[in-house]
Amino acid sequence: MPSVDDIRTALARVIDPELRASIVELGMVRSIDAHENGVVDVTVSLTTPGCPIRNHFQTSVVKEAKTVEGVTHVNVTFDVLSDTEKQGLQQKLGRSGGLPSGALAQVANVICVGSGKGGVGKSSVTANLAAALTAEGKKVGVLDADVWGYSIPRMFGLGGQRPPVSATRKILPLEAGGVKVMSIGFFVEEDSAVVWRGPMLHKALTQFLEDVDWGELDYLLVDLPPGTGDVSMTLAQLLPQAQFLIVTTPQATAQKVARRAAEMATKVNLEIGGIVENMSGFATPTGERYAIFGEGGGQELADELDVPLFGKVPLTMPLREQADAGVPLVATDPDDPAAQAIRSVARGIIAITPTQPIALQMAPEEPAATLPIVESKPKPKGMSLPMA
């Protein structure tokens, strides 16, 4: 009859690809039963019922167990670690945390930052607004949903890094300046093009909301791509309690395009929280101001929609420089005119939003196969976020 100890030693060679440790060391081997006819029954405990690398464990356990003398056949069954066992696993890995039921259960406010057109500085506003809210003592996260023009990682100095995965198989956001950050840019080669299909887009955004351990947040800022396409509609479906913050420039043309984004928000029942007028004149280092993009577009849009104009953010040289440097201007020079304006925006948002979690409910979605969600170059086809 095969030796149980020998089988356990063999199974120590089965590595969890995400936690990067042996399933024996992790305590995932629930039981091993060896029979005189050479049949072995192994029970493996998973961290989640729908673990997508279950087949990896199935194949690897059979392969390694069969290397033991006398083993003729291997049956593999699965169960799920209890909450207490998961906590013990987290301690063993030196990781803390873990989500309650519902990935956004501890998030008080979700604010989608959007614009009708590109080039209005929406991502810069998002990054600096996150820093400003953090400076006000708030817990803040940023989800970079601009999958085609992801720039948030660079603005927070996080380019080239990859988020870790917790013992409960949740992605842990990277942090910069106290802000939790998640972006598709963490999962593709820097500057590579991301090619999306509609179902992939929906599934990816769902994963960024459900499978990321956001923890307790006062604000989750979602940096939308420009326009009124799939991302905005998907997020409206998934997060019906979110508010929409529209970024525009003073230019009449930009204001009219932003009006279309507002119309989209209304059609999908997203509440419009207010307007931010960005590039509201160029402020020189000597204090002079030039209305390069005209005047009044932000206020006109706010009046038309009957929502507040939270602030008029001037374009300054340090604002651009700090975006490239990877540290939001608000954190490095809070006295800069642009930083002061954004801090005013943050205080306005705080004034109209609740301070306690509102138990955001993810809207149900159609059953879908586990990702791949991304096809990109030079990454090989079939790439997926590291969910398990």
Rank of each mutant, 00 (worst) to 15 (best):
T206N: 15
A204H: 14
Q207D: 13
G198V: 04
Q207C: 03
L245P: 01
L239E: 01
A242V: 02
K203T: 07
P225E: 09
L224I: 12
A193Y: 09
P226W: 01
N278P: 09
S280E: 12
D213M: 13
G229Q: 05
E216L: 06
V268M: 12
D191F: 05
E277R: 12
A261Q: 05
G229C: 08
D211L: 13
I272Q: 05
L217I: 07
G281T: 04
M233A: 13
L221K: 04
Q251F: 08
R259N: 14
H202Y: 06
T253V: 15
R197D: 07
G215W: 06
A242I: 05
E216V: 11
D218Q: 03
W196D: 02
G274I: 06
V195L: 13
K267Y: 03
A262W: 03
I272C: 05
Y219D: 04
F282I: 13
E263L: 14
G229M: 02
A258V: 00
S232K: 04
V268E: 08
L201E: 00
A258Y: 03
P250D: 10
V231S: 01
A265Q: 08
F208L: 05
A193L: 10
S192A: 12
A242Y: 02
L221E: 09
L239S: 03
E210F: 03
P199N: 00
G185N: 05
L238K: 02
T253Q: 14
T249R: 11
A265P: 06
N269F: 11
M279Y: 13
K203G: 08
A265C: 11
L238P: 00
M279C: 12
A236M: 06
V212P: 01
K267H: 12
A262I: 00
Q237C: 08
M264Q: 12
S232M: 12
V194R: 01
T206W: 09
R197K: 10
N278H: 07
M233L: 15
F244G: 02
F186V: 10
G185V: 05
H202C: 11
I246E: 01
E189P: 11
V188I: 15
F244P: 00
A283I: 11
D211V: 11
V195S: 14
Q255K: 08
E190L: 14
R259P: 07
P199R: 06
A236S: 13
R197F: 02
L224K: 11
W196F: 06
L201Q: 01
F208R: 01
G215H: 10
M279W: 12
Q251D: 12
R259Y: 15
A254T: 04
A254W: 00
E210Q: 14
V194L: 07
N269C: 08
I246M: 01
P226F: 02
M264T: 03
T228W: 00
G274E: 08
Q243P: 07
W214M: 00
N278D: 09
V231A: 09
A252G: 10
L201C: 06
A283G: 07
A193C: 08
M182V: 12
F244R: 02
E263G: 12
V188P: 03
N278I: 11
L238N: 03
A204W: 05
